[in-house]
Each structure stands twice: as structure tokens, then as C-alpha cells.
Design a protein around this nucleic acid. Structure first.
Length: 471
RNA sequence: GGCGCCGUCGCCAAGUGGUAAGGCAGAGGUCUGCAAAACCUCCAUCCCCGGUUCAAAUCCGGGCGGCGCCUCCA
């Protein structure tokens, strides 16, 4: 598959370095609060990347996604509520896992926490290697990375080495840095802050070191195949990760860098606490939207373009998905045995088109378009009676094939597995309505239908009987 | 100030040199007790101005507009 690599600013043909296994690291959440839908745009897109590599390309994927469970924010927030750091972050890890499940993300192979001892030890070792290689200095008990010691610093972000021009925000003297662009590897213990000491003095990790250390520890050393995250991580986070890893190992850190663009709120602004436009997954669900609609919206724009999120887009996505679900349900009405060559051809074309779209730098909107072309073709074939039960099986297979990567249909099924009216009650009311209709008591039949609609259940009559679905 | 992205139908969105996918919404028709669903038909020449080319939404230059990054950030 072709993937855009931030490192080269080009689309490149991706193949793993070691056999059939793709070793991928994705920057996860800082667990000081609930993840918002912008965070989840990144996670959902990377979930699709993972699935495409597995199910379309046939690779074995080993993915690591971290939890940053120690940083300024986690420390500050845990203090505010008077909980130990670990206990505080536990809550948000658990909440994150709930959201992940609702949005149908596949579980990844490893989800390390920065404060796990094995990881802190790995960070310590990396910092020791950096010290040995002359890339660091100490100041007031903290250890810094000296970027002037690494010629390739700035390659990923395409930084001008002469650096920071007027207008840039520079936080120059918070700690004793020699150069504003140097960054901290290990922060000296502050009063009342959590602290660890595995051989480089008491303190806590800087933000960037955890990812370098955990990626290499859990993915078997450099270079890893893919490192991914949101665009805002390009600089400084990923640039600094490269510096740490390459300064310690003298080997390329990651072959591919994949960055997902931002989700912007309706007026085109980034979500931020100060503007008050931060929405979490649970906020969206509490407004009555389906998780599947959110997943669909997040995939409806190419991952390298900014996505302007609107509440209306959720409604549009929900309608679109309904169309797919209706088509799938209609397949049940086919009774004619055998196969029609035209259908098989359409299915084959769709499968091929779908795979081609995703192989072209993960073109999810294009892939959705291919899926809908098949929906139309199948609907037309059903209406014309030119489809047999053998075809139906193949059509179903095709949609399963699409959904193994997109994951929207399965999430929709989960969304609708608990309808707002108990299934046995629906069945009972349908029975009553059928009786009313057969005695041509349409007033009563309509009353029952209206009642169900009122309660969130839509009915569809057809020659074969009445079908119900969640609205 | 530096680096970069984007501007395609009412809304969302693919397409990056060969004459505009798809979804939502809308109009007309078929079907239906009515409705819903479905099907058929209709609905854009791609922000503006130049240029290159047999051919440009796609390449180049210049505008106008929107956004991101430049150490909190998915």
C-alpha cells in the first residue's frame, strides 16, 4: 500500500522491514481527562490503517499505543481531586477503553503506561546511552538533550536550524536550559511530585522519552516500521523522539511517520478548553447520536485533511449508514436460487475498487464511495429480480470484507442491539398491527405504527411482511 | 516573521493532465391502504485573474479567502 511519509513528504510504497510483520507505534492519550473527538479522529484513522495492513495487505501487525500517565497535567489534576497519580489516571484509562469499545477500535497488542517500572527502566537506560554519547547536560538535577549535538535534528519537522524567529512562543527559562530549543529528558524532583530513581537521579520522565523508550523496548529495536499520531505531534514531540532514539542508537528510529490532521469544530477552530468547544465521545452519545455515526464521520474525510465537524454531519452520516443497513436487510427478501453473473461482476469490481482506494494512502472517503456504488447495484438487482441466493452470500461477504476495515457496520449493529423498545414488545405490537391491517382497520394499524415511531422504532411494510428498525 | 495545508453542486466529500465518484438534502415519476424503504429521471465545469499544453479542477505565476505548526496540544 502507498502511504504518505511525513519524513520524506512523499507518498511511498510501504512494506515492513522484517518479513510479514508490521511494527507500529501510535502515540496514545495523556490520561488527565476524557479523550475528545479530535483525539478519536486520530485513533479511528489509525485503527483503519491497522486493519488495512492486516486484512487487505495480509500483514501481521504488532501495534503499541501508550498511555501518558505522568506529566504536568496529570500531576496537577490528580492533586486537585486529592487522588494518588496512579489512581487518578486509572479512571481515565478505563474511560478511554470504554470509548474505544463504543467506537469499535480493535485492541492493540501493547498498551504500556509510562510509569510502569519496566518502561521507566528503559527510559533510564536510553538517557544513560545519550549521556554516554555526549548528547546531554545536567542542570539543577534535570537532564536535557542538547540538540546542537545532533546534526539531523529538525529533519522531520523541516525546521530552520537558525530556529526561532520573533513571533514564535519560546518558553525559555522555565528550567535551566542552555538553548531554548533543548528539551528535558528527566525532570528533577519537585516538592510533592511523584518521583523515581533507577540510576540517573530522582525525578520523572520528560514527555518525549517515554515514547522513544517504549517503542524500542516493545517493538524489538530500530528501525520500527511506522510511528503515528496527530499532526501537532510532528514538532516537537516526534522530532524529539527521533533525536533521543537516534542519539542513543545511531540507527534510524522509524521508517514511516504517519500524521492525522486535526478535527476542527464547526466554525473551523480547534477544540480548546478556553473556547469551550471540547466534546468527548460520551458527549456525542449523550446527545442521542450513534457511535457508528461518529465513526463514519471521522472516516468521511481523508486523514490528511482537516475535518470540520458539525452536528449535522452526524445526522448525515447516520442516514448514509441507514442506507447500507437497509440494503443488507433487503437481501433477506431474495428467494430465487442460484447466481447471476452480473451481480458477481459488480461484487468483484467493488472489492477491487475498495482495496485500491485504501491502498492509495488510506482513501477512506473513496472507499465509502465504492461501498455505496455496490449498494445501488444490489438494490437495483433486487428490484429487477436479477439476483439469486448464491449472489446474496457473495454480497454479504463483500460487505463484511469492507467492514473488517471500516468497522462502521459492526458498530452500527452494536448500537442497535438494544432497541429503545424491548424486542418481544415490538413483536407483540407487530402482531396486533398485522391483525388490524388484515381486517382493514387502518386507523388502528397506523396508531400502533405511530406509537412505535414515537418510541424510536420505524416500520417498513413489504410483500414479505413488516420489518422494524431502530430510528 | 518562518514553514506548510486547503478552497470541487444547498451541505459533506473523492478525483491531481484527457474532459467531474459517493453520501445527505431537494424535484418529478413507479410501487404502497397510507407511510417507509427501494428503483428510475433531474440537479456542478471545480474561489478569481493570467500563463503552459492538442487537452487543466488537476501544472506554473499572481490575487482573494480559510486553517495548522513554530516547544500545552491528537
Amino acid at each position: 500500500m502507498r502511504l504518505y511519509n511525513t519524513l520524506t513528504r512523499c507518498e511511498e510504497l510501504f512494506t515492513p522491514q522484517r518479513g510479514r510483520q508490521v511494527r507500529m507505534y501510535t502515540c496514545g492519550l495523556t490520561v488527565y481527562a476524557h479523550g475528545h473527538i479530535g483525539n478519536f479522529r486520530t485513533f479511528v484513522c489509525l485503527d483503519v490503517l491497522r486493519r488495512a495492513l492486516k486484512y487487505l495487505e495480509g500483514y501481521d501487525v504488532r501495534q503499541v499505543m501508550n498511555y501518558t500517565d505522568v506529566d504536568d497535567r496529570t500531576i496537577v489534576e490528580s492533586r486537585k481531586v486529592g487522588l494518588p497519580l496512579r489512581e487518578y489516571t486509572d479512571q481515565y484509562i478505563s474511560a478511554f477503553q470504554d470509548d474505544v469499545a463504543r467506537l469499535g477500535l480493535e485492541s492493540v497488542e501493547e498498551t504500556p503506561r509510562a510509569t510502569d517500572e519496566a518502561n521507566l527502566r528503559a527510559m533510564t537506560e536510553m538517557i544513560q546511552a545519550l549521556e554516554k554519547n555526549g548528547h546531554t547536560y545536567r542542570s539543577d538535577g534535570s537532564i536535557y538533550f542538547k540538540i546542537s549535538t545532533l546534526p539531523q535534528y529538525g529533519l522531520l519537522a523541516r525546521l530552520d536550524h537558525d530556529g526561532i524567529k520573533p513571533g514564535a512562543r519560546v518558553d525559555s527559562d522555565r528550567y535551566g536550559k542552555e538553548d531554548a530549543r533543548d528539551f528535558v529528558l528527566w525532570k528533577a524532583t519537585q516538592p510533592g511530585e511523584p518521583t523515581w530513581d533507577f540510576g540517573i537521579g530522582p525525578g520523572r520522565p520528560g514527555w518525549h522519552i517515554e515514547c522513544s523508550a517504549m517503542a524500542l523496548r516493545l517493538l524489538g529495536g530500530p528501525p520500527i516500521d511506522i510511528h503515528a499520531g496527530g499532526v501537532d505531534l510532528v514538532f516537537p514531540h516526534h522530532e524529539n523522539e527521533i533525536a533521543q532514539s537516534e542519539g542513543a542508537n545511531s540507527a534510524q528510529f522509524s521508517r514511516f511517520w504517519v500524521h492525522v490532521e486535526h478535527l476542527l469544530m464547526d466554525k473551523g477552530e480547534k477544540m480548546s478548553k478556553s473556547v469551550g468547544n471540547v466534546f468527548t465521545v460520551r458527549d456525542v452519545l449523550e446527545k442521542g447520536h450513534r457511535a457508528s455515526a461518529l465513526r463514519y464521520v471521522l472516516l468521511s474525510v481523508h486523514y490528511r485533511k482537516q475535518l470540520k465537524f458539525t452536528w449535522d454531519s452526524l445526522a448525515q452520516a447516520d442516514e448514509a449508514l441507514t442506507r447500507v443497513m437497509d440494503c443488507l436487510a433487503r437481501l433477506d427478501t431474495v428467494t430465487r436460487p442460484g447466481a447471476q453473473p452480473e451481480v458477481a461482476k459488480k461484487v468483484e469490481t467493488a472489492r477491487r475498487g475498495f482495496a485500491e482506494m485504501l491502498a492509495a494512502d488510506l482513501n477512506t472517503p473513496g472507499a465509502l464511495g465504492v461501498m455505496f456504488e455496490l449498494v445501488r447495484a444490489v438494490n437495483a438487482a433486487i428490484d429487477a429480480g436479477e439476483i439469486g441466493t448464491t449472489d446474496v452470500a457473495e454480497v454479504r461477504n463483500a460487505f463484511e470484507y469492507f467492514d473488517r476495515v471500516l468497522g462502521v457496520i459492526s458498530v452500527r449493529r452494536t448500537d442497535d442491539s438494544a432497541p429503545p423498545v424491548p424486542v418481544d414488545e415490538i413483536e407483540r405490537l407487530l402482531g396486533e398491527r398485522k391483525a388490524a391491517r388484515s381486517r382493514r382497520d387502518f386507523a388502528e394499524a397506523d396508531r400502533i405504527r405511530d406509537e412505535l415511531v414515537e418510541r424510536g422504532i420505524a416500520l417498513e411494510d413489504s410483500a414479505g411482511g413488516t420489518r422494524w428498525k431502530r430510528k
